[in-house]
Computed example of a mutant assay.
Amino acid sequence: MTSGDVDCARCGESWTSKPSSIYLFRIDLPSGSVLKLGYSSNPRKRLRHQLGIAHGTPTRILRTIPILTGHQAVCAEKSTHAWMRRYHPDLIVPKSDYGAAINTRTEIYRLLSAPILHGLLDRIERGLPPISL
């Protein structure tokens, strides 16, 4: 609270209340191509700076969906990941497969998951819950 990272999602001024986006990235690592689904107020910055992907590694922002608040974005993102863990755990890439190439432990999917992830993102874009569990 003191640093301003936590506040009201409706009237505050931190990430919870400012506009955000759900994104889908493609990252072409030497070990193989993967997809990264997440949320950020600045997907381009997230891709290059915060994920620690080496310069020269081919990457693409496949899709971004604007979301009114960071709080709504994180809720949609978490619901989407939960659905993937429940119904498609085989499409989740374990950290051991990409190691230090991406600065995250989770939220990385095989390329085969693209149609499923786009379908879930279509729901979010239409204002529907990503999925009901």
Results as ranks from 00 to 15, higher is better:
residue 122 D to I: 12
residue 116 I to Y: 04
residue 104 T to Q: 11
residue 133 L to S: 06
residue 96 S to F: 09
residue 9 A to S: 10
residue 43 P to S: 07
residue 115 P to T: 03
residue 47 L to Y: 13
residue 20 S to T: 07
residue 58 P to A: 08
residue 87 Y to K: 10
residue 64 T to D: 01
residue 125 E to F: 10
residue 2 T to C: 06
residue 111 L to D: 10
residue 45 K to H: 12
residue 95 K to R: 12
residue 72 Q to C: 06
residue 19 P to G: 09
residue 35 L to W: 10
residue 7 D to L: 00
residue 19 P to H: 07
residue 91 L to T: 04
residue 89 P to S: 11
residue 53 I to N: 03
residue 47 L to C: 10
residue 82 A to E: 06
residue 11 C to A: 04
residue 93 V to L: 12
residue 24 L to T: 05
residue 9 A to E: 10
residue 16 T to M: 14
residue 83 W to G: 00
residue 53 I to W: 08
residue 4 G to I: 00
residue 104 T to F: 12
residue 73 A to D: 00
residue 53 I to M: 06
residue 71 H to G: 04
residue 54 A to M: 07
residue 65 I to H: 02
residue 112 L to W: 12
residue 127 G to I: 10
residue 68 L to I: 14
residue 121 L to C: 14
residue 50 Q to E: 14
residue 80 T to F: 04
residue 84 M to C: 09
residue 68 L to G: 11
residue 55 H to F: 12
residue 26 R to S: 14
residue 61 I to L: 08
residue 5 D to R: 15
residue 108 I to D: 01
residue 35 L to C: 08
residue 53 I to K: 03
residue 121 L to G: 04
residue 59 T to S: 06
residue 84 M to D: 01
residue 99 G to Q: 14
residue 42 N to A: 11
residue 102 I to Y: 02
residue 119 G to T: 05
residue 54 A to E: 08
residue 78 K to H: 13
residue 69 T to V: 11
residue 56 G to D: 04
residue 126 R to D: 14
residue 2 T to R: 15
residue 67 I to R: 00
residue 108 I to T: 14
residue 101 A to G: 03
residue 20 S to R: 00
residue 39 Y to V: 02
residue 87 Y to S: 06
residue 22 I to R: 00
residue 34 V to T: 10
residue 99 G to V: 07
residue 44 R to E: 04
residue 29 L to R: 15
residue 37 L to D: 00
residue 104 T to E: 11
residue 26 R to N: 12
residue 63 R to K: 14
residue 116 I to W: 02
residue 28 D to R: 15
residue 122 D to E: 09
residue 99 G to N: 13
residue 25 F to S: 09
residue 115 P to H: 07
residue 127 G to M: 07
residue 49 H to C: 12
residue 1 M to G: 06
residue 7 D to Q: 05
residue 67 I to K: 01
residue 63 R to T: 04
residue 79 S to E: 07
residue 43 P to W: 02
residue 129 P to N: 07
residue 116 I to Q: 02
residue 119 G to E: 05
residue 126 R to P: 10
residue 61 I to W: 02
residue 78 K to P: 01
residue 11 C to Q: 04
residue 30 P to E: 14
residue 33 S to T: 14
residue 126 R to H: 13
residue 36 K to M: 05
residue 3 S to D: 10
residue 53 I to P: 00
residue 57 T to G: 13
residue 70 G to Y: 02
residue 39 Y to D: 04
residue 34 V to I: 11
residue 93 V to A: 11
residue 53 I to Q: 00
residue 94 P to F: 13
residue 116 I to R: 04
residue 96 S to E: 09
residue 80 T to A: 10
residue 47 L to E: 08
residue 49 H to Q: 14
residue 81 H to S: 02
residue 74 V to I: 15
residue 101 A to H: 11
residue 120 L to G: 09
residue 17 S to P: 06
residue 78 K to C: 13
residue 71 H to K: 09
residue 133 L to K: 06
residue 5 D to E: 13
residue 16 T to L: 14
residue 65 I to C: 00
residue 77 E to W: 04
residue 7 D to C: 05
residue 55 H to N: 08
residue 112 L to Y: 15
residue 76 A to K: 01
residue 30 P to S: 13
residue 80 T to M: 13
residue 118 H to T: 07
residue 11 C to L: 08
residue 56 G to M: 05
residue 7 D to M: 03
residue 56 G to L: 01
residue 58 P to L: 09
residue 28 D to C: 15
residue 122 D to H: 09
residue 60 R to N: 06
residue 10 R to W: 08
residue 68 L to Q: 15
residue 21 S to L: 05
residue 48 R to L: 08
residue 20 S to K: 00
residue 44 R to T: 05
residue 53 I to V: 10
